[in-house]
């Protein structure tokens, strides 16, 4: 891979506990994780291994019980509740397993919404949203509601929304889980290009070993501990 040496995500000794007393459960047990600019990292592991918990903490939607997480120059583990939405807007783009588009808004509006939250004015946001939809080959679907799109198309709208405003980090949670093999392959290619051509740091949680070959690194997590962190060698 051609990842630069700039470390975009740097997590050290991350512990996450849920519940308390007899119901206390430790989902992450001192995880160290990092990712560089332009790197495409896959987080793998069985269900309940802690990978989604880790991505949630990296995405500033969940607080770690202890440990340190730095995103670029920001120590997000010391951020207050009120600062977290701002950090998400500044650094993170999300792609969800279920697409999570706003059902009542068109593809263009879903993408423009992200830009508006990032401070773009209405006209510019609409134009940029149309451009981003063209990038994911949905230029003819700007006015379609999510219900009128296929699963693959919805996921591509979700990708366009994710990169709207150019966040440095893209966190994807099982982006191919609800897609057929061919569409899953296409979506993964798009994610790969986000890292390789646009310089985003892409961290993808997946069970889907058909897409492992796209990754720069595959980090295997089990029982809240990283068991393996290996670089992929691409032909």
């Amino acid at each position: 891979m051609s990842a630069s040496t700039k470390r975009v995500i740097d997590a050290r000794g991350v512990i996450k506990e849920y519940g308390d007393g007899s119901t206390k459960f430790r989902a992450l047990r001192g995880v160290d994780f990092h990712a560089h600019e332009g790197e495409f990292v896959i987080l793998s592991g069985p269900s309940g291994s802690g990978k989604t918990t880790l991505v949630s903490i990296l995405g500033c939607v969940l607080s770690a019980t202890s440990g340190q997480v730095r995103v670029l120059d920001e120590m997000i583990t010391s951020a207050t509740e009120a600062e977290l939405p701002k950090l998400r807007l500044a650094y993170i783009g999300f792609i969800f397993q279920g697409h999570n588009l706003i059902a009542s808004m068109t593809a263009q509006e879903n993408v423009a919404l992200m830009l508006a939250l990032r401070g773009w004015n209405h006209v510019d946001a609409q134009k940029e949203a149309a451009r981003l939809l063209s990038l994911v080959e949905l230029g003819d679907k700007v006015g379609s509601l999510p219900a009128d799109l296929s699963g693959g198309q919805r996921q591509r709208v979700s990708i366009a929304r994710c990169i709207a405003g150019n966040p440095p980090i893209v966190l994807a949670d099982e982006p191919t889980a609800s897609l057929d093999a061919q569409t899953g392959q296409l979506v993964t290619e798009v994610l790969h290009n986000l890292a390789k051509k646009r310089g985003h740091t892409v961290v993808t949680v997946t069970h889907d070993n058909r897409i492992y070959h796209f990754a720069d690194r595959i980090v295997h997590i089990e029982d809240g501990v990283i068991l393996d962190d290996k670089k992929e060698t691409h032909p």
Binding site: G38, L89, R118
Partner: peptide, 9 residues
């Protein structure tokens, strides 16, 4: 890729 400014609408 250009890093976004810390934008908050």
């Amino acid at each position: 890729f250009t890093a976004p400014k810390k934008a908050f609408a």
